[in-house]
Simulated scan of single mutants.
Amino acid sequence: MSSAVSFDEIKTKQQKVWSSGDYGKIAWITVPLAETLVEAADLHAGARVLDVATGTGHVAIAAARRFCHVTGIDYVPALVESAQRRAAAEALAVDFQVADAENLPFEDDTFDYVFSAIGVMFTADHQRAADELVRVCRPGGRIAIASWTPAGFIGQLLKTVAGHAPPPAGSLPPTRWGDADTVRELLGRKAVSLGTTTVTQRFPSAEYFADFFLTHYGPTHAAAGRLDDAGRRAFRDDMIALATTSNRSADDTMVSDWEYLVAVADKS
């Protein structure tokens, strides 16, 4: 089987994963990342902006609030519909479309800024997705990406998922995008500004976190669906243990700092 066919099959499976659960609830977590990302990119009013793998539209909406001309794409139709409703609620003119991050339906050099927050890191073919980000960005334009790091909380959660329900053969770890050297390589060693930061998350308890993610977060929801009762209990126990280890709360609630990498690159 060729690599391209393998990636296409992986993408189909990934799309089903992200269509499961209810990512609209999980997406609350990444709202602060969107604001951090557009500020890190020094987004200017009036710019042409593309938000790739927009999800429920956080970055696209943040850019529209800054008076930019914004397009957002995602390959999960339900997420695009949610993003459209959110923009409409604020009377923001954002062009949301169902499209594939690995095959963007735009001409070369179209956008001044190309963003992706916790988006392209979950593509099947990382290099193809990176090449598309660069292709649609104009010379002198800017690419800005936020991704969970391998050592951070979500990186460890995804490692836990893989330990209980291994991903399809040939899958690339999404947290590669959270490694500075890898991002430089993916973007063609262009000048890249990189820095890690954290977003603080709060849940009523470690157990609540585990149940919330098992119900709503595509990767954990789909993984649990592949397990028998004993396997699901073990999976939940490991999620609780991870949450407990990261917890810095002084009471029975959960307070945890989740690390992510911000990468900003100018296209020459």
Rank of each mutant, 00 (worst) to 15 (best):
A40M: 05
A40F: 02
A41L: 05
D42C: 06
D42H: 08
D42M: 08
L43P: 13
H44T: 11
H44V: 10
H44D: 08
A45L: 04
G46I: 12
G46D: 13
A47N: 10
R48S: 10
L50S: 11
L50T: 11
D51T: 06
D51M: 04
T54G: 14
T54C: 15
T54V: 13
T54I: 11
G55F: 01
T56M: 08
G57L: 12
H58R: 13
A60R: 15
A60D: 14
A60K: 15
A60Q: 14
I61F: 01
A62N: 12
R65D: 11
F67N: 15
H69D: 10
V70R: 02
V70E: 03
T71A: 11
T71M: 11
T71E: 13
V76H: 03
P77F: 09
P77V: 07
L79Q: 15
V80R: 10
Q84S: 13
R85E: 11
A89Y: 05
A89D: 13
A91M: 05
A91E: 12
D95Q: 14
V98N: 06
A101W: 04
E102N: 05
N103F: 12
P105Q: 04
F106H: 15
E107N: 13
E107L: 07
D108G: 05
T110L: 02
F111Y: 09
F111T: 03
F111R: 07
V114A: 00
F115Q: 00
I118A: 10
M121C: 06
T123Y: 02
D125Q: 05
H126P: 04
Q127T: 09
Q127K: 14
A129M: 03
E132C: 00
E132R: 00
R138F: 01
R138A: 04
R138V: 02
R138W: 00
R142F: 03
S147T: 04
W148S: 03
W148L: 04
T149Y: 06
P150C: 11
G152N: 06
G152S: 05
F153G: 01
I154T: 10
Q156F: 02
L158K: 04
L158W: 12
K159E: 15
T160H: 03
P166H: 02
A169Q: 13
L172H: 07
L172R: 14
P174T: 10
R176A: 12
W177P: 03
G178L: 06
